[in-house]
């Protein structure tokens, strides 16, 4: 993997250009264009607020449900959108993969630039919401970018692994929406971890997204540092997923053109 990185770096231009191209195409072809980055999480947040806050009266440890849900949704959307866009990306670029030689990881990674942009927009809106709700703003918030990096590593690893696997097993495309749905309801996106019965919580926290969301929420909603245990386990999981995902990708990369 060590000699793959310099090669990838040489092709960073392609990474940018692919992402920029997609961004431009999206901007040009949809009526709302880049505003979708905003509309999607905000509307989901509104729906979940109505359902869980007004109808189901879920208690979220004394903070506003709007902030609570929005934090979870922005972070969840980054994962879900990255997987939805990243997994089929190699297959969708078939004409490129079978005709030109370049490090193939550029294709799924370029998708992360687009979804990463949406994530940043979502985070920007979160900052505005925090101001509007007069949430505690302190230097603790400086850990948020760090947690975002951990999530990025995790997502990157999954997308690399999944996009390669997708080429070999196309079932993944049909399974993905279902998997994401299940995963979302098993993650504390719209409800707090405290809702889970005590004896299942250890099991529940094996889900890396649960760790990552807990790590986001402590500084953003409560102005406290996330527990070192949570952050460390999240980091270890993310690093392992990234290394294994990339290694798997590189191991099967050369099969892509043969299989398509």
């Amino acid at each position: 993997m060590m000699h793959d990185l310099p090669r990838l770096i040489r092709y960073r231009e392609l990474l940018w250009t692919l992402a920029l191209g997609e961004f431009k195409a999206r901007h040009r072809q949809t009526f709302l264009g880049v505003a979708w980055a905003l509309v999607q999480p905000v509307s989901m947040m509104l729906i979940f607020t109505v359902v869980f806050s007004f109808f189901a009266k879920v208690s979220v440890q004394g903070t506003s449900y709007v902030l609570f849900a929005y934090t979870g949704i922005v972070s969840w959307m980054f994962l879900a959108n990255s997987l939805s866009a990243g997994l089929p990306s190699i297959v969708a670029s078939m004409n490129l993969v079978t005709k030109v030689g370049f490090p193939r990881e550029v294709i799924p990674l370029s998708k992360l630039l687009t979804t990463g942009f949406d994530f940043l927009v979502g985070m920007g809106v979160l900052a505005l919401l925090l101001l509007a709700y007069e949430a505690p703003v302190s230097s603790v918030l400086l850990v948020v970018p760090g947690i975002a990096v951990i999530q990025l590593m995790f997502v990157m690893g999954l997308v690399l692994w999944g996009s390669a696997l997708y080429v070999l097993k196309r079932d993944l495309g049909t399974m993905l929406p279902l998997l994401l749905q299940i995963w979302m309801f098993l993650s504390p996106v719209v409800y707090p971890v405290s809702l889970i019965p005590e004896r299942y919580q250890t099991l529940y926290m094996l889900n890396p997204m649960a760790l990552i969301m807990e790590a986001y929420r402590s500084p953003i909603l409560f102005g406290t540092l996330p527990s070192p245990g949570t952050v460390t386990s999240a980091f270890i999981v993310a690093a392992v997923v990234l290394v294994v995902g990339y290694a798997y990708f590189k191991a099967v990369e050369m099969k892509f053109a043969d299989v398509m």
């Binding site: 092709y11 231009e13 940018w16 250009t17 191209g21 431009k24 195409a25 040009r28 030109v100 370049f102």
Partner: peptide
């Protein structure tokens, strides 16, 4: 190979150049 059909010729020059390894 790798032209993005929705993009203008100008953008595709950069895109295809990058595909072929140009900065």
């Amino acid at each position: 190979a790798g032209f993005n059909l929705d993009l203008a010729g100008r953008d595709n020059i950069y895109l295809n150049g990058a595909v072929l390894g140009l900065s």
